[in-house]
């Protein structure tokens, strides 16, 4: 996976899945491609219209808490978000990110240093975030997870492994 590069959208602590992807859409919007339109609707109304491929969300503690709805990840991965950097993630949200090939990076030092709106670069393989304030490192993702990323998510990854074993 190449380097990730984009503009930062910075938010606070305990951002829950309800404001990332409102519950009222969970049964009415089922096409993944439609989901980015409603991303962060109740947190930042500007986000959905302005987010660019490669942009990076920086959140505080417990990003993605609340329900386990996968749409709260898909609405961002479909928008081609580059990564989410947070102080910590809600467990299921973290798993949903990695399984949907959206890098979820835990790096409290970077969260403190990065300013809203600045440009950052992330090197996933070596675990380095570069921002105006300098370089920050995080544990690089292991090969097994990189393979899931490279395949485009857990479903295509499993498909690939199944067809290889047959």
């Amino acid at each position: 996976m190449a380097e990730i590069q984009g503009k930062v959208w910075k938010y606070g602590d305990n951002v829950n899945t309800d404001v990332i992807f409102p519950g009222k859409y969970t049964y009415t919007v089922s096409e993944p491609a439609e989901m980015p339109k409603y991303a962060l609707e109740d947190l930042d109304p500007e986000f959905a219209g302005a987010v660019q491929a490669g942009d990076v969300i920086v959140g505080g503690t417990n990003w993605g808490c609340g329900s386990s709805r996968e749409q709260a990840v898909v609405c961002l991965s479909e928008a081609k978000l580059g990564a989410i950097i947070a102080r910590s993630f809600a467990r299921i949200y973290y798993r949903n990110c990695l399984n949907n090939a959206l890098p979820a990076i835990v790096c409290p030092e970077a969260v403190d240093a990065i300013e809203n709106g600045e440009n950052v670069t992330i090197d996933l393989e070596n675990g380095i975030i570069t921002c105006q304030a300098g370089k920050f490192s995080f544990p690089p993702l292991p090969e097994a997870v990189m393979e899931i990323f490279n395949a485009g998510g857990l479903i295509p990854y499993t498909k690939k492994r199944l067809s290889e074993s047959n």
């Binding site: 299921i92 798993r95 399984n99 479903i155 499993t158």
Partner: peptide
């Protein structure tokens, strides 16, 4: 774990 993970 999630459903997709279980299927995998």
């Amino acid at each position: 774990i999630g459903r997709t993970e279980m299927a995998s």
